[in-house]
Nucleic acid binder design. Structure first.
Length: 267
DNA sequence: TGCCAGGAGAGTA
DNA sequence: TACTCTCATGGC
């Protein structure tokens, strides 16, 4: 068990923010988090984050996963005082953090996300893990499944992928799993080039590429524009959000807006 | 029953 | 370049 001060941080907000799909609330109030090939249980007590893992595992993985070194309070405080909508959005989702997630998992997950809804994405991702990932035992003695690697996914037929509820996206996943594309090569690229390379993949457009950049490459300048953001920008910003005001971290701001728009207000 | 969802590809003008 | 149609499918 590891206990560390982390503020701001709200696990409920992060779990419901649409950036991760394998973070689920348990009956005891904790959150089960499956990431990379690991699994832990997390809960907050005040400003204290309690993780069920060893100190070593925390230092090696979870600390970075929670983006420990970014000052989210400073980001919240930087919001334009004239921007009433954004002030409300940040207040509503003030415990948000951008998790540093596994790159391959982000690519596949956000390819599945297109023209889809979050509960259904979660279901598809979980089914894919159960069918093609490795079965492991977590710290509480429960079984969990890792997200399948590229070679593991390449063993799946189109029909097997279709059975995971992917709909028409099954062939996109099939194609990328059988391609010679190395997602990890993106880490060594200029971020604009990385986006171009992502957009060459069948089933990846600008929006999905920006999600992969933000959640998989931790490029906080990335500002994905989906249906929610578009509607909100049309309503509150005359169709275009002033990303230049938030140089270097507009992606975090995007996440506050998305979360507030999707769960906090009626459009 | 029809519309929507963290969109993108293909066809057409 | 810009627009439109289509693609599965569960939830409301």
């Amino acid at each position: 068990m590891v206990e560390k001060i982390l503020a701001p941080c709200d696990l409920a907000q992060i779990a419901d923010s649409g950036q991760c799909f394998r973070m689920t609330k348990q009956d005891d109030g904790s959150y089960k988090i499956c990431a990379a090939d690991l699994c832990t249980y997390a809960q907050m007590k005040g400003q204290k984050l309690i993780l069920e893992c060893t100190e070593q595992e925390f230092e090696d993985f979870w600390k970075d996963y929670f983006d420990w070194d970014t000052d989210y309070q400073k980001i919240c405080d930087s919001v334009d005082k004239e921007d009433e909508f954004l002030i409300e959005a940040v207040k509503y989702g003030s415990g948000m953090r951008i998790l540093k997630q596994e790159l391959w998992e982000m690519l596949i997950t956000f390819m599945i996300s297109q023209n889809n809804n979050i509960p259904r994405i979660q279901k598809s991702v979980e089914t894919i893990c159960e069918k093609f990932g490795d079965k492991k035992t977590d710290i509480r003695g429960n079984e969990y499944f890792t997200f399948p690697t590229k070679p593991q996914l390449a063993k799946a037929s189109i029909d097997e992928l279709r059975q995971c509820g992917l709909g028409y996206r099954d062939r996109y996943i099939y194609e990328i799993a059988h391609s010679d594309f190395d997602v990890y090569s993106l880490k060594n690229m200029d971020i604009d080039l990385a986006e171009k390379e992502l957009c060459k993949i069948t089933g990846v457009g600008k929006k999905v590429a920006n999600c992969v950049k933000l959640f998989g490459l931790h490029d906080l300048t990335s500002f994905p524009i989906d249906t929610w953001i578009r509607k909100l920008c049309d309503k509150y910003y005359n169709g275009s959000f002033p990303v230049d005001k938030y140089k270097g971290y507009a992606g975090v701001i995007q996440q506050y807006i998305f979360f507030y728009g999707r769960t906090g207000i009626k459009l």
